[in-house]
Amino acid sequence: MQINHSRRALFLKPFAVAEHTSEHSYLPLRPPWSLADSDFLDQCSRCHLCIDTCEENIIKVGDAGYPELDFSQGECSFCEACVKTCEGQFKQGLLDGNLSKSSPAIVKKTGLAPFYFDLKIDDTCLSKHKVACQSCQEVCESESISMRWLSSIPVPEIALDDCTGCGACLSICPSNSFMMSALASPNTLGHS
């Protein structure tokens, strides 16, 4: 495994692996349609306007003051308020003669998903301990969570290809069994 020794990578948690490796690397969850993490860190001015305009109040100040998603309070409705605010702030900077950034940190591009992520259910899931719970399936609008009968109690199963990454399952889970992490490699798709 290769380690990124740059100063900025030191503050990423848990770590980032070089793009050309086949291993997954996990980065903080950024607002929807954020640039690839390295580009996001370069372009984000940490103005926190995306935090202020988030209708669901799920964008919080994260490590080093950069915005991160916190699904413990709710889910993302993909309202695009953070995108419009970031793009508006960038345009205002251009008008004011502030050309320190080459692009907004959050840009909705056609064909790109709001997030590229990995979502897992750990062993603390109540259903895995034979306690009937289907709260995650009940709130999943994309129907990407189904219940599979492995024993007398059905256990949730995720179809990641259908999942939007809204975070509803994370906010509703009584045992906090869901873990969503941003993936570094797909997050670079479509960004130049």
Rank of each mutant, 00 (worst) to 15 (best):
T110S: 09
G88S: 15
A81S: 10
G93S: 09
K84C: 10
K108E: 01
C76Y: 13
L94N: 01
S100V: 08
E87Q: 15
D70L: 06
T110A: 08
F90C: 08
K101N: 05
Q89T: 15
K84F: 15
Q92W: 11
L112H: 05
E87Y: 12
K108D: 00
L94G: 07
I106K: 07
T85W: 03
V107C: 05
P104V: 02
T110H: 04
A113M: 14
P104D: 08
L95F: 04
G97F: 05
K101V: 11
D96V: 09
V83L: 10
C76P: 07
S77R: 09
Q92A: 15
F78M: 04
L99W: 09
K91W: 04
C86M: 07
A113P: 10
G88Q: 03
E75S: 08
K91G: 12
I106G: 06
S103G: 04
K109Y: 00
Q73P: 04
K91T: 13
G93E: 03
D96L: 12
S77P: 07
G88H: 02
F78A: 01
S72L: 06
P104M: 11
E75T: 04
E87F: 14
S72G: 12
S72W: 08
C86A: 06
E87D: 12
L94E: 07
L112F: 03
L95D: 05
I106L: 15
V107M: 09
D70V: 03
K109N: 07
E80K: 11
L94Y: 04
Q92R: 14
I106A: 12
C86V: 06
N98S: 12
P104N: 08
A105D: 02
K109T: 03
G93V: 12
C86N: 01
K84Y: 13
K101M: 12
C79A: 06
C79V: 00
D96N: 11
S100A: 13
L94W: 01
A105I: 07
K109W: 00
G97T: 00
S72M: 05
D70F: 13
T110D: 11
A113N: 14
S102R: 14
D70H: 05
L112W: 02
C76D: 06
A81Q: 03
I106M: 14
E80T: 10
S100W: 12
G88L: 14
V83F: 07
G88A: 15
A105K: 07
F71C: 00
L94V: 08
A113V: 14
K109D: 05
L112P: 06
F71H: 06
A105N: 05
C82D: 01
Q73V: 10
E80D: 08
L95H: 07
C79W: 01
L94C: 05
K84W: 09
E75W: 11
G97M: 00
S103E: 13
F71G: 00
A81Y: 08
C76K: 08
G74L: 03
C79Q: 02
E80P: 02
K101R: 13
L95W: 02
K91R: 10
C79D: 02
Q92E: 08
L112M: 11
S103W: 04
C79P: 01
S72N: 15
Q89Y: 14
I106T: 05
D70Q: 03
T110W: 01
A105Q: 06
D96F: 10
S72I: 07
N98T: 03
S77W: 09
F71E: 01
P104F: 09
L112V: 03
S103M: 14
G97H: 02
S100Q: 09
A81I: 02
T85G: 03
